[in-house]
Design a binder for these strands. Structure first.
Ligand code: FES
Ligand code: FES
Lengths: 161, 161
DNA sequence: GATAAACTGGACCTTTTTGATCCTGTTACT
DNA sequence: AGTAACAGGATCAAAAAGGTCCAGTTTATC
């Protein structure tokens, strides 16, 4: 009952793209570095996002990934389901034929309600609104003793997301 | 993002117990048979439900499982979390320290809202209300050609739940 | 008290999913 | 032509899910 790493990476990647100028091509390595995503893994995730029509992959030298829709038109549900598949919460709802009582089952109805609620909640979170909260820019850099700027020491499991 | 088999079995088992008279001890094999749960697996699940205080296990000859609370006092959330652990939906929420931006992250807030919604939805579904809908009794038996009564042929993934 | 029925708790096993990497080939900029 | 960069399938390791087994213990019943 948990979002997979791939799902979280996808959200981060799209968030990063949304923070850039529209239709700007961004290199895979740049995204991977900035968002702390394993680069080869991001390749797969980008492909899934491309299949879902959320991003477009530009091949060749100076290639990379670019957003294909506006941040207003894409939401958390789109991105998560692009890499995780449709959200179902339980088996009876994923495949109602597997349980012939589903149309009459009160438990089924509760899960169904929960599922609709969850999907709607994610669907309401468009990336433009997430960015509008202005809270997902890169974390403040800290001046280090050696004069360079770097991240704070300690727990920084993820930079942006 | 899916309920495990163990979670579903737990719901079925408790549902079955709730359909019995209060404080009645029911044998593990009976529950397993009626609810189509692998018997040895049910043993583990029963232990988890017992640890959570939902059921009580009676040892010795003629032992089994009995409900320790009234169907009004137990809900889907209790049972599911007893076997699956607390529901979190994503890693940042499970362990906020793993991500130092969590107090400021708009994505985090969406997941948090989704999580609260989901848990509340499950918490509102008490077993007494599930039973009250009167729709989870055993499916209608069908008279077979050989004269015995059995289940309908075909898709009956689960009997009760 | 002996016996049998029934659960305990941990070890063990298999399959699936997750998370990730690698390699060969293709595309496109310069 | 050369090179930077992605495509996409093969592969792999670790973890979780799903389930089984067994030696030991508890309790009812004879
Ligand atoms: S048992 Fe499958 S829906 Fe209730
Ligand atoms: S990144 Fe962990 S909460 Fe937003």
């Amino acid at each position: 009952m948990r979002l997979t790493r791939a799902g979280e990476y996808a959200v981060r990647a799209v968030l990063y793209l949304c923070s850039k100028e529209a239709h700007q091509v961004v290199g895979r390595l740049e995204i991977a570095r900035e968002m702390e995503i394993p680069a080869p893994f991001l390749a797969k995730i980008a492909q899934q996002l491309a299949r879902a029509g959320i991003v477009e992959i530009v091949q060749g030298s100076r290639g990379g990934v670019k957003l294909r829709v506006s941040p207003r038109e894409v939401n958390l549900l789109n991105v998560v389901e692009a890499v995780e598949g449709e959200i179902f919460l339980n088996d009876c709802i994923m495949d109602p034929l597997s349980c012939r009582r589903s149309p009459f089952c009160s438990v089924y109805r509760v899960w169904n309600k929960a599922r609709n609620q969850l999907r709607q909640c994610l669907a309401e979170a468009s990336f433009s609104s997430l960015l509008a909260e202005g809270l997902c820019e890169l974390p403040p850099k800290v001046k280090q003793k050696d004069g360079t700027y770097g991240l704070e020491k300690g727990n920084h499991g993820s930079i942006l997301l």
